[in-house]
Every structure is written in structure tokens, then in C-alpha cells.
Nucleic acid binder design. Structure first.
Length: 287
DNA sequence: GCCCAGGTGAAGC
DNA sequence: GCTTCACATGGG
């Protein structure tokens, strides 16, 4: 039983919590019927979708829920975003396929670290790596009585202080030196993550891409999932496949041309459209 | 065994 | 500039 925790209801409509938490943007949510549990901003939280919105239960006392509303982006007007999407058949199909899919607004460091771990890994494996990093190096957070321990995502100072071998023990493989070097850049202040929010998207992307192990795709993931940069468009293997098959089914199109098409086609919330295409491609039955 | 995974950096044209 | 390859590890 929960003793000291808190609960609230975030009133929101047209919010597909299940799809949102399982669409490859965040990697720390586990099914805990009838909802999902995870750690956000250093707090263990259990979420349940209801007709009124999203019910949240923490283990520690909580008076102000802004951190959660911000993470879930429950205050944004989804309809006004969707209205900016192109109305072509593939986009409409992707929208129909997963109504209410949302973009989260994650912590920049956690998001950056997670996507450094993501390169040429399947989502199940990314989840394993990140769970391992948290269990090995994260600070424990309050959980309900009798619950398994849960951990905050380790900060840049913590990971910067570990050896490459320590990180490799979490199955990072060749990504271990990248994660360590990035942690050192952030911990030292040579990269000021909060300050990226004040920049133009191109300048912010440039800063991220100076990090070892961070190319255009990972930079765009961070810009889209952790910052208000709605045009950032991660072009990964799945989205490339989606654009190729759905928009150019007759002829093989070079990646450069796919990228060029994307920039011109999806509008001011291109990154949001990308998330619908990504999830559509990964979860639809045929093709 | 084989191929692939929410890629990137470096080496070779 | 562009193409190819190595990089760890595990799932299907």
C-alpha cells in the first residue's frame, strides 16, 4: 500500500498514453496494469489512462505536478498541431493508425544519453542498456512499499567519473567511450544543455553534433524530444523506409533526396509528423 | 549461422 | 564530395 505518495488527474483528451510511452522516444516505461510505471524528474510515478485524462500516482509526496504535465505535454493543443500536417494518403493513414500519439518533453541530458546508446540497437536492447545504467549508477528513488527498487537516470557528473570499462559492463559496446566523453563535456560545462533552448535550431544542432557519437540523427532526436524544436526530423532506418515506401513506391530514392523531400513536405511540426510515421511503420500489420 | 538494429566516424576513392 | 567499413551485442 502507498502511504506517503500523492495522486492527481491531468485532464486531457485525445491522448494515447500507451502509444506515446511505447513509440521509441522514451525507454524507461514498464507496463504495470492497468497503466505504466517509470521515473520522471527523479520521481517514481504510475500513470493510468482514464476517460477524463491521465491519473498519476507518485510514491513520494507531491504538491506541484508541473514536472509531469511538462513531461507529458498534456497542455498542448494537439489538434492545432495536426492541422499543420500535409493531407496526403500516407500521412492520413499514419494519423488514423494511432490517434492521440504525442511527443514527450524529456530531460535533455537523459535524452541525449539515451540516444547515444541507441545507435544500431533495437528498442528492446536500448531499454536494457538504459535500465542497466540506472541500476548501476543511478540514485534510488522512493517507490511504493514492497516494490522493486527504482533509480533516477545517472547525471553527467556520475557517468563522467566512471571508466569506459564500467560503462561497457552495461552492454554499451562501442558506444561506451562516446557516452563517457559526452558526460564529461556536459559535466564540465563545455556544453551547456539548457542554453541550447535559447538558440536557433541550426545552431543548437551544430552544438550537439560536436559531441563524439552524435551525428545528425541523434542530434535531431534530442532537439525534438527534449526541446521545443518542432521541425527537427530524425531520419532513421524506419522513417527512411516509411518515406521511401509510402511516398516513392515506384523508384528507389537516394537518402539525400529523402531528406530534401522531408524538409519541404511536413511543415512547421515536421518532427511530430515524423513520430506518427515512425510508429505507423513499426506497428502496422502488412509491409 | 545469418541479417539487422531509432548511427557515427574514419578511411579510401 | 561520396561510398564503404568497423564498431559490440543480442533478437528474430
Amino acid at each position: 500500500m502507498l502511504i506517503s505518495g500523492s495522486a492527481t488527474l491531468l485532464r486531457v483528451q485525445n491522448y494515447n498514453l500507451e502509444a506515446t510511452l511505447n513509440s521509441g522516444q522514451a525507454f524507461r516505461w514498464d507496463a504495470a496494469p492497468p497503466g505504466w510505471e517509470g521515473v520522471v524528474a527523479g520521481r517514481w510515478v504510475h500513470l493510468v489512462q482514464t476517460p477524463e485524462g491521465i491519473r498519476a500516482q507518485t510514491a513520494a509526496p507531491c504538491a506541484d505536478w508541473h514536472w509531469l504535465a511538462h513531461y507529458l505535454q498534456s497542455e498542448i493543443d494537439l489538434e492545432s498541431v495536426l492541422r499543420t500536417f500535409p493531407t496526403d494518403p500516407p500521412m492520413r493513414a499514419a494519423l488514423e493508425h494511432t490517434r492521440g500519439l504525442r511527443l514527450l518533453r524529456q530531460d535533455p541530458w537523459e535524452c541525449l544519453a539515451a540516444f547515444i546508446c541507441s545507435s544500431t540497437k533495437q528498442i528492446v536492447q536500448i531499454r536494457q542498456i538504459i535500465a542497466s545504467l540506472c541500476a548501476c549508477f543511478g540514485t534510488p528513488v522512493a517507490v511504493p512499499a514492497g516494490h522493486l527498487p527504482a533509480f533516477a537516470f545517472p547525471g553527467p557528473e556520475t557517468l563522467a567519473a566512471r571508466s569506459e570499462a564500467d560503462l561497457r559492463a552495461c552492454k554499451l559496446g562501442f558506444r561506451a567511450p562516446y557516452l563517457r566523453a559526452c558526460a564529461q563535456e556536459v559535466a564540465s560545462g563545455r556544453l551547456d544543455l539548457p542554453r541550447l533552448a535559447q538558440m536557433e535550431v541550426g545552431q543548437a544542432r551544430e552544438q550537439l553534433m560536436r559531441l563524439p557519437g552524435v551525428g545528425e540523427k541523434i542530434a535531431n532526436c534530442v532537439l525534438l524530444f527534449a526541446y521545443p524544436f518542432p521541425t527537427a526530423f530524425p531520419l532513421d532506418v524506419w522513417v527512411k523506409r516509411a518515406i521511401q515506401r509510402l511516398y516513392f513506391p515506384k523508384r528507389k530514392v537516394h537518402v539525400k533526396r529523402l531528406a530534401s523531400f522531408v524538409r519541404g513536405h511536413f511543415g512547421p511540426h515536421a518532427g511530430y509528423a515524423q513520430q506518427y510515421l515512425f510508429h505507423y511503420m513499426r506497428t502496422r500489420k502488412a509491409l
